[in-house]
Design a binder for these strands. Structure first.
Length: 119
RNA sequence: GAAACAGACCGCCUUAUCGCCUCGACCAAGCCUAGCGAGGUCGGGGAGGAAAGUCCGGACAACAUAGAGCGCCGUGCUCCUUGAAAGGGGAGGAUGCUUAGUGCAGACAGAGAGUGCCACAGAAAAUAAACUACCUCGACCAUGUUUUGCAUGGGUUGGGGCAAAGGUGAAAAGGUGCGGUAAGAGCGCACCGCAUUGUUGGUGACAACAAUGGCAGGGUAAACCUCGCGGGUUGCAAUACCAUGUAUACCGAGGCCUGAGCGUUGCUCGCGCAAUCUCGGAGGGUAGGUAGCAUUAGAUAAAUGAUAAGGGCCGUAAAUGAGCUUUGCUUUUAUUGCGGUACAGAAUCUGGCUUAUAGGUCUGUUUCUUUU
């Protein structure tokens, strides 16, 4: 299985991100919010966001973003289960004000995706 | 050997799995094929002492190869030294504090240029004056007496003296003593303090001494301000190029070298460009790539990691062990357990400053202790 995370899988354009915020569907579970819109590309693209208002320290924000990225990277097969034929642009927002450990973030992420699958 | 203080330095490691950025070599789908290359393999490199705050410098870039005045900002004891500068180091001076130490502290120029402010208390808060009190002279009253007079720690009232006293306050216009006087006063004198001038010593900040003057005066200048010294302004979101047909763009009217307007630093000048101007109208578009940008970190939604296991280091002393002065102590150059492992994340580079920081190492000084 491919657990890589290349540049083409990153959502970079500020314009596209604000489109996702405007048009995307929203789903909140625990301390994570996910927004997503279908794209017409060959791969999913994702952006991670940890608000400065919630986590003031740059070191902690970096750590959280790295854990979010790992959670996404190691759980990529889940996305293909949910959308076997489509590819999505996603934005993942972290809302807790403290640093959660990897296991709790992963559990929360899987919960969000499962509730997506049921809907 | 221990403690305190000062300074300098270091500031976790290993393995496994899965990943990220970048450079080089090789392979390579494909394409508009001397090239460009998605992707792949192998190898190299990949956060800090503060990368932080953005407080001072410098490089670099634009504006006149950066010019004038005003404004504004920074800075402020002396000498030596280091440095391109900012800044650092050493030695010293005055001031304040002081536990009196070979100690500590500071933007350490000016409050004897001006302006402002200073609660409460106090008679008064700054030119001084009024008030209380004090001394004295006159008048009247009272009392005493040796009775046309004299006297009084007496009262009332009017005049004069008044830089002393008023015990408040952070601060009250030199202090102490002697003389002087009706009472007092630098009114006079001695010593101390202050100011000015001089001499001597010192490279100097400054110090000592002498003479002269009866003698300025509260605090606050990281309040305005004055003086000395320094600084042109804006910053890599600078700036250049490419692309989006052009943004000083297109259409209509007006204006036009006798200089409108624009650019240029906060303003004025100066300088540069010079019809790109004014009014109205019509629609659209860009806001991203390359250079800047890195002598092996180098991105551009921003890499330098995530997870797991183990080990260091520090603390603790609960359990076990060991020892002893044996029911309580000691011991981690015993084991296990438990806890901690900080502050913090490059974005043009660079020198400083400031602030944060678990734990550790080294050096020096002082004190205590042990051994020889």
């Amino acid at each position: 299985m491919d657990y890589r995370f290349k540049k083409t899988e990153r959502l970079k354009s500020a314009e596209r991100i604000s489109e996702v915020f405007k048009q995307g569907l929203v789903l909140k579970k625990g301390f994570l919010i996910i927004r997503f819109v279908e794209n017409n590309l060959d791969a999913h693209r994702i952006a991670f966001s940890v608000p400065k208002r919630k986590v003031a320290s740059a070191v902690k924000r970096n750590l959280i973003k790295r854990r979010l990225r790992e959670v996404y990277r190691l759980n990529k097969p889940l996305l293909d289960e949910i959308w076997p034929d489509k590819k999505m642009d996603l934005v993942l927002l972290y809302l807790a004000s403290e640093v959660k450990d990897y296991e709790r973030i992963e559990a929360n992420y899987q919960k969000v995706l499962r509730s997506l699958n049921n809907a």
